[in-house]
Design a protein around this nucleic acid. Structure first.
Length: 482
RNA sequence: GGUCCCAUCGUCUAGUGGCCUAGGACUCCAGCUUUUCAAGCUGGCUACGCGGGUUCGAAUCCCGCUGGGACUGCCA
């Protein structure tokens, strides 16, 4: 008895959807929890009109980012066209299929109010020959029922009479999803079909195809185990839409989510580890994951929770790891990849790696996304900060006491010992002289030096920035205020 | 319309007849801490959709209702 063989079979018709990412992950879990598990990536690219090569790259790179390593692939379903054609020929010869020249309009017109089942079997007994206008349909049994044994949902029964004679191959000869997928699953000796719940209605059709294929080929291939994952939905409880929802896995990478955090969150959508702890190491997830334990109901993809988990993962990193992992956002010139559409606000020459290493710990505990780093340390790498006008107006321009504070600081900073603790004391003392509590006293200085009212701890920042630079910025702010 | 799936805090979930006056996590709120912002700590709000059964006992089993969703393509 060999291990589980699973496949993730996306179609390259858009960004790599987070729902797809979760399907891929759950498949991968099943493969990796056995020493002899096998994981295939199969690109289902038979619909030439909608598929684009760049989307394939997106799938491959996103999976690699998430660490979902493959045992095989990416395979192209289009490469298996001969096998699909062979399946059609055999099924046709076996009497399981028939030609049909009905157009969509024909079917629609005949259906009228009675919409069950979709196609009325009009061509079933017409004995049509193959032509450019004929598609191929499957003769669905008109009695009995088909039961899908689903690992997550249990047995789901479909009456065969409500399943129409669905199209198996287009008039162009291209074999469609139901059969192409089944043929490839048989050839790949797939044992577990783990996919989104939207495919549940396809399962009985595919089971019929599977056993018909067993008949006509004489190969008695065992049916795979099915597991239909609950959908990922948006706030309106609708299936996540590529058009309206932020579903592109790539964009999460670009924003600075950590792959480990992303995987951990994805796993929590529909599954939960034993005990009260949700953030668990990957090895534990792989070991404990069970399809039988997957929840039945749709889950909302909650970016807030994802972000929280990401922040925790960031804080768990060592400072060295943090510096290393932040490279794409702070020194893309040193990095193997760059987040798209995110320009670093300083040049290679202005960047100071040593300085960044020193502020890194201060930044690390205040961010949730790596993409937040640049805005937080920007002021270190320019002669003058990029001034937030609203902050400047509020904290300095419209506040005479604040300006007194800056003047006092300029005078005092000239010969004070330049270290954070001393600066802290001095600012506190200066503030007291002006009747300001520390939080008020530090605000104008922070604003003048960093250009913002929020940021890393001020006195540590001043120490790193240096005396001259700090005083120059304070003077400049005073100028601007008058 | 038809078929199928689903139903515990706002969200993700734990819970498989008694351990549940329903647990954890996120969010939110309050407080503490505090050089800003975060983080951290403490506390709080809030849920078994409704109605019937079964049972000594039901969030857990059964039925009905209601609600939500998926599918219903010569897309996947």
């Amino acid at each position: 008895m060999s291990g589980p063989r699973v496949r993730f079979a996306p179609s390259p018709t858009g960004f790599f959807h987070v729902g797809s990412a979760r399907s891929a992950l759950f498949n991968w879990f099943v493969a990796r929890q056995s020493s002899d598990g096998y994981f295939i990536l199969r690109i289902e690219d038979t619909d030439a009109d909608r598929n684009r090569e760049e989307w394939v790259d997106g799938i491959v790179s996103a999976m690699s980012w998430l660490g979902l390593n493959l045992d095989q692939g990416p395979d192209r379903q289009s490469d298996n066209a001969p096998a699909h054609a062979d399946a059609v020929a055999k099924l046709l010869a076996g009497g399981y299929l028939y030609y049909c020249d009905c157009t969509g309009d024909d079917v629609q017109a005949r259906k009228g109010d009675n919409k069950t089942p979709g196609y009325d079997g009009h061509c079933r007994e017409r004995g049509l020959e193959k032509s450019e206008k004929t598609g191929v349909r499957f003769k669905t049994p008109q009695t009995g029922s088909t039961v899908v044994h689903d690992l997550i949902r249990g047995d789901v029964e479909f009456q065969n009479t409500v399943i129409d004679d669905f199209i198996v191959a287009k008039s162009s000869g291209v074999v469609l999803y139901a059969l192409a997928n089944v043929t490839d699953d048989r050839n790949d000796a797939i044992t577990h079909v783990i996919r989104g719940e939207e495919h549940l209605p396809n399962a009985p059709k595919q089971m019929m195809l599977w056993s018909a294929l067993n008949e006509v080929t004489g190969d008695n291939v065992a049916l795979p185990v099915y597991a239909h994952l609950p959908l990922l939905v948006n706030e309106q409880r609708k299936k996540l839409s590529k058009r309206k929802d932020p579903v592109a896995t790539e964009s999460y990478r670009d924003q600075g989510y950590l792959p480990d955090a992303f995987v951990n969150y994805l796993a929590l959508l529909g599954w939960s580890p034993e005990g009260d702890e949700e953030m668990i190491p990957l090895e534990r997830m792989i070991k404990e994951f069970r399809l039988e334990d997957v929840s039945h109901s749709p889950a909302f993809f909650d970016v807030k929770k994802l972000s929280h988990i990401n922040g925790e993962y960031i804080r768990k990193l060592s400072v060295e790891q943090f510096i290393e992992i932040s490279a794409p956002w702070v020194r893309p010139w040193d990095s193997a990849w760059q987040p798209t559409d995110r320009e670093v606000p300083w040049t290679k020459d202005d960047f100071n790696a040593e300085l960044f290493a020193k502020v890194a710990p201060l930044v690390q505990e205040r961010i949730v996304l790596l993409g937040e780093i640049p805005a937080m340390v920007d002021f270190f790498f320019h002669d003058q900060p990029v001034m937030d006008d609203a902050a400047f107006t509020k904290a300095i321009k419209n506040d005479v006491v604040a300006q007194e504070m800056i003047k006092a600081a300029i005078a005092r900073f000239a010969d004070v010992t330049w270290e954070a603790a001393t600066l802290h004391e001095e600012v506190a003392a200066l503030g007291e002289g002006l009747g300001l509590v520390l939080r008020k006293a530090q605000a104008p200085i922070r604003c003048a030096v960093t250009g913002s009212l929020v940021g890393p701890p001020l006195f540590e920042s001043l120490e790193l920035l240096g005396r001259e630079n700090t005083i120059a910025r304070l003077k400049k702010a005073l100028e601007l205020a008058n």
